[in-house]
Amino acid sequence: MKLNKGVIGRLYRVEEAALPQSMKRRLAVLGMTNGTDLEVMNNKSGGTMVVKIRGTRFALGRHITENVEVTAL
């Protein structure tokens, strides 16, 4: 499933990010690499989300969340 369908309070594992290389690189540096677990903290209808990755909260825009493939844990 795509990350933007994530439910608040649930944990997901990142499988694959279909994003431009530069964006992938920025996410990787922040600790969001393939196989990373994340928790959905907040999800607005538009797909803008707050996720917790490795103990830090990040706000992610719709363009990111709808292109990240995750599996529920």
Binding site: M23, R26, L27, T56, A59, L60, G61, H63, I64
Partner: peptide, 10 residues
């Protein structure tokens, strides 16, 4: 342009 929000919420 793809305006992707990416910001830390401290």
């Amino acid at each position: 342009t793809e305006n992707a929000l990416l910001i830390e919420l401290p």
